[in-house]
């Protein structure tokens, strides 16, 4: 009898938001607390020390940050990261959405197309980066080969040797890798839009463009915000693509925060400084997230 009432009490409580909510979030929180909170704390703390590999280091306050601000390589890196992130995210978003709208229609082979377009996203980046490395190779690039055969150029384009071309090349490679992420995300979002709404708009005589702009797009906004923020974070903290293709060269023109942090901390041994560079991404991303969250709250 008592057990029964206990159980009933338990299941009643379970039905209340203020009990059920924390209970349901606890697995996720637990995992994050163990494997993330502490490393994050330690990482931020490292940024305020002069720790080296094998040496614990001591507290030096903002010294690492002061040195970084006076370091031209760091300044180039900051510029690169913002440029790289800004440009690629805009392209990935627009191209990804376009692709999703295209693939949202039915046509012969649409299933195959939907799966194939995921390929750039699936192949391990370490290996697809190697493929890009060949495509952009000064001697073996098949872009150069084709252009030369067509008589458009007489000397190969130095994709990765020139500072701006190298930035552009990595940006293209990153866009290539990122389009499927947006496309698949939006595709699912488009599926969730009730057909009745679109039908109603069409009956009211709206053009496809008007339908998109007044019906589809507003409904996609929350999803857009989420996809964009996460993609921004990923791009902002990108590592593998740059590390494989240029190592941050030429002249540090393609270094991003994380590649520089890694280079200084691990091959260079300066853990504290590397952690400071990595931690530097936090306030920027926080700012961005704050803006995104505000936007989201308005939309939902």
């Amino acid at each position: 009898m008592r057990a029964g009432s206990l159980f009933r009490g338990f299941s009643e409580r379970l039905d209340r938001s203020r009990w059920l909510g924390p209970l349901l979030t606890s697995p996720a929180l637990l995992l994050l607390a163990i494997f993330l909170a502490y490393p994050l704390f330690l990482g931020v703390w490292l940024g305020f020390t002069n720790a080296k590999i094998g040496w614990p280091g001591r507290w030096i306050g903002l010294e690492n940050y002061r040195l970084l601000f006076s370091d031209p390589v760091f300044r180039i890196t900051a510029f690169n990261t913002v440029l790289y992130t800004g440009v690629t995210v805009v392209f990935k978003l627009t191209l990804g959405l376009t692709l999703a709208l295209l693939l949202n229609q039915r046509f012969p082979g649409y299933r195959l197309a939907r799966s194939l377009m995921l390929l750039p996203w699936i192949v391990p980046t370490v290996l697809s980066a190697i493929a890009w490395w060949w495509i952009l190779d000064p001697q073996f690039s098949f872009i150069n080969w084709s252009l030369e055969r067509l008589g458009l150029i007489d000397q190969g384009i130095n994709f990765l040797g020139d500072e701006w071309l190298a930035r552009a090349s990595l940006i293209v490679a990153n866009i290539w890798r990122g389009i499927p992420f947006f496309a698949i995300g939006f595709l699912a979002g488009l599926q969730a839009i009730p057909k009745e709404l679109l039908e109603a708009a069409r009956v009211d005589g709206a053009s496809p463009w008007q339908t998109f702009w007044h019906v589809t797009w507003p409904l996609l906004l929350p999803l857009t915000t989420i996809l964009t923020t996460f993609s921004t974070i990923w791009t902002f903290t990108d590592f593998q693509l740059v590390w494989v293709i240029t190592r941050g060269g030429p002249a540090n023109a393609t270094h991003l925060f994380v590649t520089l942090a890694y280079q200084r901390a691990i091959p260079g041994g300066a853990l504290g400084e590397g952690a400071a560079i990595a931690a530097f991404t936090l306030p920027l991303l926080l700012l961005l997230s704050w803006a995104a969250l505000r936007a989201l709250r308005r939309q939902l």
Partner: peptide, 9 residues
């Protein structure tokens, strides 16, 4: 939690 870059942590 998502803002943490793994390359250093």
């Amino acid at each position: 939690a998502y803002l943490v870059p793994p390359a250093i942590l």
